[in-house]
Simulated scan of single mutants.
Amino acid sequence: MPDDVWERFVQDSERDIRISQAPKEPSARARMVTERLRQQDARGELPPAWRADPVGQGANGRRARRRRVWTVIGIPLALAVAVVAMKPSLLPGDPFGTDSAAVMGSGSGPAVSPLPAETAPETAAPGSAPGSPTLDEPFAGSPAARYADGAAGIVLPEAKAVGAFSKEQVAGALEQSRTLLVGANVDRGTLLGDTPETVLGEVLDPKQPEFVDDLRSWLRKPGRGHDPLRFFSRFDQDEVRLVGDVVKTRGRTTFEGGKDGALDIHVDYTFVYALAPADPDSGEVARTIVRRVIDLRLLDPAKYEATPGRLAVIRYDDDIANSACGVYDGFLHPRLASGGPTGAPPSGPAVDPYDRSRDIGDDDGGAGDGDSGEGSCGSVSRT
C-alpha cells in the first residue's frame, strides 16, 4: 500500500476511535427517564431482574466495544476493497486478467492482444500497429507484436490416417515438419551461424538425391546460385545482434494424401526477427521478415527408396524483407541507419511483407529487399 494512503488510513482510524471513546453528555430526556427509574427503584417498584441489568448498561458497554472493534476492522477492509477496485491486478495471480504486462511480455509498451492461430488463408494485410521499435519493445509498431513466440506459433492440425500411413505416423511427420521449421528459422544456434544438424541429420531424408548434400555445401561455401538463405535464416554476429530471445512466428500447416499413398505436408510461415547493431552501446532496432513456403512429402518405403519417418523436400520458396540485396555471403543483412552492407538498391512497387494473403514464388522477385532467389530486388512498405 502506498505510504500516503497508509498515513491517511492511520489518521482516519485514530479519529474514529477517539470519537467512539469520547464521553457524551446525556440528553434531557435521558436524564428525566433515569431520574424516574431511580425514584421507582427507591420505592421498590422495579422487579429484581431489572437490577441485574441483563440488557442495560452492560449490554450498552458491549455494543460500544463492538463498535470500536468494527471501526478498527471495517475501515482498513473498506480501504482494501477500494484499492483493489481501482487496480484489480494487485490481487495474487491477477484473477480478472487485467495485467497488460502479461499480454506484452516485458517492457512498457501499449498492451496488445495475441492473434488466434491461423487456421485458414488470410484474405488481407493486417492493419497498422502503434509505436516504434526499442530494445525493450523491439516489435512495437509491427503486426508481429501480436504474433506468437517461436515454436508456439507453429500450430499443427489434428492428425488422421492418410494414404499408407496411420494416424500416429502422420502425427510423427507433422512433428518433423515443426522440427524443421524451428531448426531452420528459430533455433538460436542456426540464427547465429551454426550448422542446423537437427534439420540435416534428423528430419530431411538422406536418400533424397543430392538435396541434403547441397544444403551442407551451401552452408560451407555460399554464393549466388547456392545460397543457404533459401532454406535457413542466419545473421552475421560481427554485424548485428539479436534483440531479446523471441522470434515472432505466424502461419499454418496443412496436409493431404499424395501420389502412391504418400503424405504431402504444406507449411507457410512468416518469421520476424528483431536486430540491433553489434555495438552494445547502440539502441537502434531493425526488423527482418522472412516468409517460407515449403512442400514436404513422406514417401511409402514399400514403394520408394525412402527412409522411414524422414521428409523429402518437394518445393521451397522464400520471401525476405529488409535485408541487403546482391550480397551472397550466407547471412541476412538488415538495413540499418548506422550503415552496413547495402547491396543493390530496392526497386519496383512497395509491397507489405506482413500481407500473408499474397502468393510468393521464385518468379515474383520476392516481396522484400532480400534477393536469395534470382528475382529482382523489391521494396517494402513497412518492416
Rank of each mutant, 00 (worst) to 15 (best):
M1D: 12
W6R: 14
S13Y: 03
D16S: 12
R18F: 08
S20K: 12
A22C: 08
E25D: 13
A28L: 09
R29H: 13
A30H: 11
R31P: 03
T34L: 08
T34N: 06
D41Y: 07
A49D: 03
Q57F: 12
N60H: 13
G61Q: 02
R63P: 01
R63G: 08
R66K: 11
R67M: 12
R68M: 14
G74I: 06
P76C: 10
L77K: 12
L77D: 12
L77Q: 15
L79V: 12
V81E: 12
P95R: 07
T98Q: 07
A101Y: 12
A102S: 14
V103Q: 14
G105P: 06
S106T: 14
S106C: 12
G107S: 01
S108P: 10
P110F: 08
P114Y: 00
A120S: 13
P121H: 09
E122C: 10
A125T: 04
G127L: 06
A129F: 14
A129V: 13
L135Q: 07
L135P: 00
P138H: 04
G141V: 07
S142I: 03
P143H: 00
A145D: 08
A148T: 09
I154Q: 01
V155S: 02
A159W: 05
A161D: 02
A161R: 01
K167C: 09
V170N: 03
Q176L: 10
Q176P: 11
R178S: 05
R178E: 04
L180N: 05
L180C: 03
N185A: 08
V186Y: 00
R188T: 14
G193N: 05
G193W: 05
E197H: 14
G201F: 07
E202L: 13
V203G: 10
D213F: 11
W218A: 15
L219N: 05
R220T: 11
P222E: 01
G223M: 04
G225Q: 11
S233Y: 00
E239D: 15
V240I: 14
R241G: 08
R241C: 04
R241Q: 11
V246I: 06
V247I: 01
V247K: 01
K248F: 03
K248V: 04
T249I: 01
R252Q: 09
T253K: 00
G257T: 06
G257K: 09
G258N: 00
D260H: 13
V267M: 02
V267I: 07
T270F: 02
T270C: 07
F271R: 08
A276Y: 01
A278N: 02
P280K: 00
G283L: 06
E284T: 09
T288A: 05
V293E: 14
I294P: 00
I294M: 13
A302P: 07
G309N: 01
R315P: 05
Y316N: 15
A324G: 03
Y328P: 05
D329N: 09
G330P: 02
F331N: 13
R335A: 12
L336C: 03
S338G: 10
P341M: 02
P341V: 05
P345H: 00
G348N: 04
P349R: 13
V351E: 13
Y354L: 04
D355I: 04
G361I: 07
G361A: 10
D363T: 15
D369E: 14
G370H: 05
G373Y: 06
G378H: 15
S381H: 10
